[in-house]
Write a protein that binds this DNA or RNA. Sequence first.
DNA 1: TCAGCTCACACTTTTGAATAGC
DNA 2: AGCTATTCAAAAGTGTGAGCTG
Length: 664
Amino acid sequence: MLSVEMYPSLALGTQRHRDCYYREREAPPHIPLCPAPCDMAARALAPSLLTPPPVPSQPINMPQDDIKMELENASLWKQFSSVGTEMIITKKGRRMFPQLRVKLSGLNPSLRYILLLDIVPLDSSRYRFQGDSWQVVGGAEARLPDRVFIHPDSPASGAHWQSRTVSFHNTKLTNNTLDTHGHIILHSLHRYQPRVHVVEARDMQSWAGGQRSFLFPETHFLTVTAYQNHKITELKINSNPFAKGFRQDGMNNKRQRDARQKRKLSQVSNMQDGESAASLSPSVSCGPCDSTQTLASHPPELQTLTLPSLPLLPSPSCGFSSNQISFQETPLPDPPLQLGHAYVSSQIADLTVDMVNGQQDATGSNHQPSDSMIDRSGSISLPPYTQTYPDTQHGSMSFSSSSLPQPSSSYPSLPPPEHSGPSLPHPSSQTTPSSTSDYPSLPSIDYPSILSSSPSLPHTSTTSPLLHQTSFTYPPLTPPSSTSSSPQPLLSSSSYHSLSQQELTQQADTGPPQIAFSFPDLPPSHPNQSQPLQMSAPLPSLPFSLSGATHSSSYPPVAPTEMGSFSQFPPGAHYLPEMVLHHPTLLETSLSSYPPPSSGSPTLYPPSSAPPALYPSFSSYPLRLYQDPCPSYSLPLRHVYRQPQLGHTHAQGSYLDMSGRAMF
DNA sequence: TCAGCTCACACTTTTGAATAGC
DNA sequence: AGCTATTCAAAAGTGTGAGCTG
């Protein structure tokens, strides 16, 4: 059985800049604008729990630098993004549409990788559709437990991933905080950004490879329980085959529905009048004729509403059809994959993340559950949740096309929190001014990331030349090479802007621009950055990480390392504790090897001096996933419930769920 | 009163088992 | 007997709109 330890900080979003998602090696001065939950948690923790995880003695192999990911249906996403993508979330779970389908390249065909999808908040605001635009109406609700969708093919060889389109179409979104199906839990009327993570399983014996994380700004969306923008509805109806019935020529369009309703009413009326159904007027009862009639009678302008320019949806068999040979069907030996406490069945369908009740993590930190009863089935008993997120938000910020917030010029000059509102990624506006109109309702987002100038920068976008993918590459285990010999700055929005455009210029002759951001594993600790990060840079975060197996006897022993960890939050935390990244090696690397910022550059963490922590360290739980080749190990519920400590306040407790479902 | 949510509904596609044909 | 193609029903995925809730 393979083992991979995973750092579940995939979903570090806006709040995570508030949360202390870094365990600091030191206790640098830190002046948070407001006491972060993790701050309080950290203060309440025993010092022993704050010890940074040990650095593995073995060197961490570098991931490939040339891993590229392309959003296959980028044009469709862009269409939706230009209007303001809305995703329906339901209690039972709703699929995403457009689907998140990517193509990978640059992987080592012989190595194994796992792919994960998580969805992180874009900001800490709640929205309402007023007029024709989305407006901020308050602060975000408490962060929900993060769940990560592990692609069911995982782990698969690089050749496998590259040979097909990788689709996360089976990912379901729900607003049911008690969901037991492993769907990704989101808040309604909040903005989110999906991210895809590629984790390298270097070989059968070591999972100490790196990982890359990618996000495509055009894939952000607003969660709704019912569509607010009719334009989105039209796009969905005309793009989604399942909604074909609602198209102008469909049997379920409004005209047909009205006709049916009229017939029904007529039938009821006739029945009440003692008339037989056979006496119904033919003009009322001929359904199919209505359709034909409707089509023929449609004025041209109505028929054009079907958006003929929409790209054809690829056939379901494209890349991820069930008839394709799954990686699991290949006679590859089963490497022990240990990804925290999730059980990944060999049947690719069941991933169960389990959490050992407060068991020791690799570092020996013992986290005992304090006040919850958790079993594998997901039943828990936790103290009631009380939301305490302050409604500090900006009452009427709109990111409609007419009121796009302008990106701040630099971190020091970033607006105060009340201006932190919508900050959507705006690739086109930041890369090609001519395409700005494609995102009329999307404010730009500030990526406080390091612009990677390493050779690994993605630079191709074969599917959508107008799409400027922004790839966040997390694990720069070595300092990213700088073409300008200057350190990689933590970009402010303006930096993002200018550099993007610069890259555009530089790449104008070489191909479609594609901006890659490398996420240094640096804590957002710069005091001057803390607020801007909170306000305008919600996305960057640290990915989970992997390390060598620690429990399988068939593999060389690896120094115990604390891997994934759960932050602990005190009662009243603004956000629930989430997956927190603690990758000692990356942390070490980032702290020690990252180039210092050049003067005048946007703030960057100096490498030599321990970066001032934005948040104090905090305790965490380890998370492990196990791959079990025995199908019987597959469990219907695949959750990890984080043990609440220090009186965690969520009704469910704070938990992490990582699940996988069969998609092929 | 109203915004937001839930649910039933009709329609569609997808999936898989059953059947027929070679 | 074995394989392939076709058919059919069930399951699942859609948006809609009425009704419910806080």
